[in-house]
Nucleic acid binder design. Sequence first.
DNA 1: GCCAACGTTGGC
DNA 2: GCCAACGTTGGC
Length: 211
Amino acid sequence: MVAKNAKRAAPKKTKPAPKPQVRVTGARKDKSSAASQNPGAEKKWTLPAITRREGERRYWLMKSEPEMFSYEDLENAPNRTTHWDGVRNNQARIYLRDQIRVGDGVLYYHSGGEEPAIVGVARVVREGYRDWTAFDATHEHYDPKAKESNPWIMVDIQAVSPTAKPLSLASLRGVRALGAMVLLQKGSRLSVQPVTSDEWKTILALGGVAE
DNA sequence: GCCAACGTTGGC
DNA sequence: GCCAACGTTGGC
């Protein structure tokens, strides 16, 4: 499949972000005793169990270079769905693995072009699973250092609707309600970023998108 | 464990 | 193409 997240040979983006206020009910045991007792066997990774408030939904922004994989590419993909592979940043991995769940909203952002902009809305249709491209030596996103015990993670997203027009980064900077948005912070590089529900509403309104 | 060197992201 | 910001690596 296509590498959403990667320019050349390397995967993608990064950035600091607000701490999620999630209650983690299932303790992660990445360094379980099983592994230490059995050093030869790499521990299998499993999706952490996370409890959300009833009906809670979260929102994210994902970056892609349009030449790599544009929003239009997503719309044209089978079932308007693709897997978001190639994320090779630890903070983004934590979001993909521990925070993002089916049904979450996604803002699709085109980076690197002449006019960086949010161009569409998508939704998460499959949550965190092993990004196999990291283990495929022939794949563009191969990571020789990837470990099965702590794999890179991908999710599947499905196109919902393009925005009526691209919401350029420059124009978003002028929107007061978005002053704290991660995307607009200096040095913001994370390719998977959290978005607040207020920011989500503001952007969908600006983009003329009614989910 | 510090931190300099290096590589990458991505706006401009 | 420039370069600031950030992440990673590796020497010590």
